[in-house]
């Protein structure tokens, strides 16, 4: 068990290093969501005056959750591309031919995605605070946001790993980028659910990303609420469960056809 933990940690370190050494893996996690946050906040700041908009200190406070969700979802897609590249160059074969548990190479990638999610959370909360956002729930809220962001990154890492294992193609994984935006816009990540038009409103109501967005946003715009945090965790659990099932199928497929 300790041996496998050491393997997972070593593979996680390798994946984090890989992200920092290949800018195209890091850019979608930090640069794109930051630019999106800047443009969105600067251009649509008056949205907070709309009648059904929840009470917030500023539009930036509201948008931070969306930026962090976007960042962690893209971290999952980047993980998919990185894992698909590993499959393509045969690096996964090196791992499969070693005496380690089959799940270790996926778990190592998930650990790395979690670390990148944590970095993303720290980045967005820091720039948020610098540019005038408030964390209404204080230090405890700050910690809850970081935990949820990290777990969400891991959940999307499972989706990414499933994508890579089932397709083995970096270009297919890359093609998923636009879908991230569709999923996010059809949730409460960037706008309150009550302000969305049908059918987007109904879809957002069923979209687990809305649960996660609300859970992430809650400590930023109001006092900590256990219900909202649990809702966020439930949303993450739904994503992670889908990812884990597809991932297990992908690992079996990879091992059968390797």
């Amino acid at each position: 068990m300790a041996g496998e933990a050491r393997v997972v940690a070593a593979l996680g370190r390798r994946s984090v290093r890989q992200a920092f050494r290949r800018p195209q893996f890091l850019a979608p996690i930090i640069v794109f969501p930051t630019l999106f946050l800047a443009v969105n906040t600067g251009g649509a700041g008056r949205a907070v005056d709309l009648p059904q908009f929840p009470p917030v200190h500023g539009f930036l406070d509201f948008q931070l959750a969306g930026a962090m969700l976007q960042s962690t979802m893209l971290a999952g897609v980047s993980a998919a591309i990185a894992l698909a590249l590993d499959i393509q160059i045969g690096f996964v074969d090196r791992l499969v031919a070693a005496p380690i548990a089959r799940a270790s190479f996926v778990l190592g990638r998930l650990v790395a995605t979690g670390v990148l999610g944590l970095i993303s959370g720290l980045w967005f909360l820091t720039i948020g605070l610098i540019f005038g956002a408030h964390i209404a729930a204080g230090v405890a809220g700050f910690v809850v946001v970081l935990v949820l962001v990290t777990l969400n990154a891991i959940a999307w890492g499972t989706i990414g790993a499933a994508l890579a294992l089932n397709t083995g193609s970096p270009s297919v994984a890359q093609g998923v980028f636009p879908i991230v935006f569709v999923i996010l816009f059809l949730s409460s990540a960037f706008f309150p659910e009550g302000l969305l038009l049908e059918p987007a409103k109904t879809i957002a109501n069923w979209n687990p990303m809305s649960l996660i967005a609300d859970g992430l946003r809650d400590p930023i715009i109001s006092d900590l609420s256990l219900d909202k945090t649990l809702e966020g965790l439930a949303g993450i659990a739904i994503v992670a469960s889908i990812g884990a099932i597809l991932c297990a199928r992908g690992v079996n497929k990879k091992l059968r056809s390797a």
Partner: peptide, 25 residues
């Protein structure tokens, strides 16, 4: 095992790869 494609991560250094391989074993 040394497979046909020399399955090496181009972003790792030689030393890092050797250490990783040691951990895997």
């Amino acid at each position: 095992v040394a497979l046909q494609e020399a399955a090496l991560d181009p972003l790792m250094t030689g030393r890092e790869l050797m250490r990783l391989q040691g951990t895997l074993h």
